[in-house]
Design a protein around this nucleic acid. Structure first.
Lengths: 220, 220
DNA sequence: GTCACTCGTCACGACGCCGTCAGACCGGCG
DNA sequence: CGCCGGTCTGACGGCGTCGTGACGAGTGAC
């Protein structure tokens, strides 16, 4: 689900935005101050941000500018004032849109979706990361310690399945039915071979993929 | 210089916009009707478009939709009415922004620049570049190491699609439906042939277009 | 200590996919 | 009517991927 960071100091606005976004199919992450917004974005980057201009600590424009030093996510700026210079400053600071309160919920969602659509073209896909491992599921790209590694289709599906249930134990049966199909349910020999090949490519040190003897495998 | 297509049926608005844009460093191309705007854009694609919603012949939203069938240029929609449903319709039709009259000239320019920034690079370049490869999508011109290369329509679409999703793996199905249409979904033989021809013309060294056996192709 | 079991690894053969070429078809143009 | 560029099809050699079997290592039960 697409995650949107909402930063506003007025609780009732935050609550309203949360409802609107949830109904439109987004997941809202909230922050009441600029610092908090920057922290949240740093810890787990959202797919877009909605910032109020007036915040208790730092200016919304400054938040926007700092976000832009490391991310290209769509940023919408909200404000109660429609002052033209303010709009220009926000847009020049890297905001994608400037919406004046009061605004309709449908308009906000439409503007957010327009910004996301525009960013989706050039922006990077969501990437699963773990240790020095990066898996871009959409682009079918796997990098180990930064260098790209070629995986065969089966190896990629195997790694994807392991990573999707990161930490959880996956039985042989679960992996075989997920990757090969129900007919291969008991073909553990094949699974061993491909797991070996996968490890050689993405886990030469043997730290990431653990085997639970007699049961299955898990991604640490 | 960045060229902006301005479409409005009120002459004094067009004149005002022209001045504003010129002062901001843009070149303005004008049209008074929707059809004229579509014609001008087709003959020589501008880098962005500003469309009034109310036009003598066809709806501004319809113009927007038709432009979107072949171009991704930033589109700003202007309107005298701030009706929310109208905004949503315009944004869903592919517009990047919706500005309600009356608006300040600086705001308009800032919004235009924000849209251009987001659209790709910073400015006027409809040219996709990678390695020693240049693809001018609008002009249908391809250069390899500086020398122009002739591509057939299919080869051009193929290269355009690969380049637009640079780095991402495109399955056979995705390429076939994108370039040929849904009916050719399983016609991999044709795809192979054209991919071979395309490689001979734009990638004789075999470094740019990669094959993922059993899955598809990608542009490195 | 021995046995049974499972796991990881390697080598090998089979199969299917890939790249390439030659040729047929078709519409546009002179 | 003949030429020509563009597209699709079929055939063929080559190579990558996959599944199988064999072998040694590790582990726990008795």
């Amino acid at each position: 689900m697409t995650r949107v960071l909402v930063c506003d100091d007025e609780p009732h606005i935050v609550r309203a935005l949360k409802v609107v976004l949830r109904e439109a199919g987004f997941e809202a992450v909230t922050a009441a101050t600029g610092e908090e917004a920057l922290d949240r974005a740093a810890v787990r980057p959202p797919d877009a941000a909605i910032l109020d201009l007036v915040l208790p600590d730092i200016d919304g424009i400054e938040v926007c500018r700092r976000l832009r030093t490391w991310t290209e996510m769509p940023i919408l700026v909200l404000s109660a004032v429609g002052d033209e210079d303010e709009k220009v400053r926000a847009l020049e600071a890297g905001a994608d849109d400037y919406v004046v309160k009061p605004f309709g919920p449908k308009e906000l969602v439409a503007r957010l979706q327009a910004a996301l659509r525009r960013a989706g073209g050039s922006a990077a896909d969501p990437v699963l990361r773990a240790d020095g491992l990066e898996v871009d599921v959409a682009a079918h790209v796997v990098r180990v310690e930064g260098v790209e590694v070629h995986l065969t289709p089966i190896e990629f599906d195997l790694l994807k399945t392991l990573l999707r249930h990161r930490g959880r134990l996956l039985t042989h049966r679960a992996l075989l039915t997920e990757v090969w199909g129900a007919a291969y349910e008991h073909d553990t020999a094949t699974l061993r071979t491909h797991m070996s090949n996968l490890r050689r490519k993405v886990d030469p040190a043997g730290e990431r993929i653990r085997t639970d003897p007699g049961v299955g495998y898990r991604f640490a």
